[in-house]
Design a protein around this nucleic acid. Structure first.
Lengths: 134, 134
DNA sequence: TTACTTGCAAACGGTTTGCATCGAG
DNA sequence: CTCGATGCAAACCGTTTGCAAGTAA
């Protein structure tokens, strides 16, 4: 089971199903399109609301890509990790960032900052995409 | 001199002046407001265009904050560094991230990614803002 | 039955763009 | 004189929200 969730509805289930079926980050729009493509008709607003709830509940990871869209991905482990995202095809690798949390905490303390949050994501071209590029 | 620049216009100069006068990240909107406040009347679109050109030319750093706005800051040194940004007042501290570049390179290599780029920013509440908050 | 969810469409906020005009070179 | 830069307003795009109707519990 994946943490708290508001109420069990079919659309919520459909959304979770799509997320469960992929390892990549997807935007709310993509998810919505995927749902319609497979026949589930769910409102865009509902997708956004569900995704937000899930992110708040910690069921999914979210990050903002270069163009400002928010991407969601099912969150495998409760352990915090970061990502290596392919700029071109969007595939991702979860990567461990040893010491980052610690470093962040230390830096924050040094400057008197509290309620810390950090954003550590790596972007690049995966081997496959790099090969394609001329 | 600060890299290539298209054409010397008064509004471009005013924008550069504002950026030169602060160490913080500012949004295009903030910059526009600041300009109007000091009497320089420059169109919002012009601010956006200038900022984009400058970012493309490498004259300014840019990053996207949690709410999706793009923030710009004059790019002091060619040396790469990261930031600790106050979620509330926007003030920033440059922080050193020892080993991050190295770690990023190692991770990328491990997964066969090339043309790497990374995004490492810390967000929190600065001491002043934390004190104000009830 | 009650209160949370949904769907729709309208509202939003930041950013971009079309077009006529302005002005640096 | 020319072509890039500007200003305005409209267009965009992803996301959020108000509200009436639907539905899980």
């Amino acid at each position: 089971m994946v943490a708290t969730q508001k109420r069990a509805t079919s659309q919520r289930a459909a959304i979770q199903a799509v997320l469960a079926g992929t390892d990549e980050f997807v935007s709310a729009q993509d998810l919505h399109a995927a749902l319609r493509a497979e026949g589930s008709v769910v409102g865009l607003a509902t997708v956004y609301r569900a995704l937000q709830d899930m992110a708040a509940a910690g069921d999914v990871d979210s990050l903002r890509n270069r163009s400002g869209e928010v991407l969601y991905r099912r969150c495998g482990q409760p352990s915090h990790h970061h990502h290596l995202v392919c700029r071109s095809c969007g595939s991702t690798q979860e990567v461990a960032a040893p010491g980052v949390e610690q470093w962040a905490r230390a830096v924050a303390e040094q400057y008197g900052y509290v309620d810390l949050d950090h954003q550590v994501e790596l972007f690049g071209l995966c081997a496959a995409c790099a090969a394609v590029r001329d």
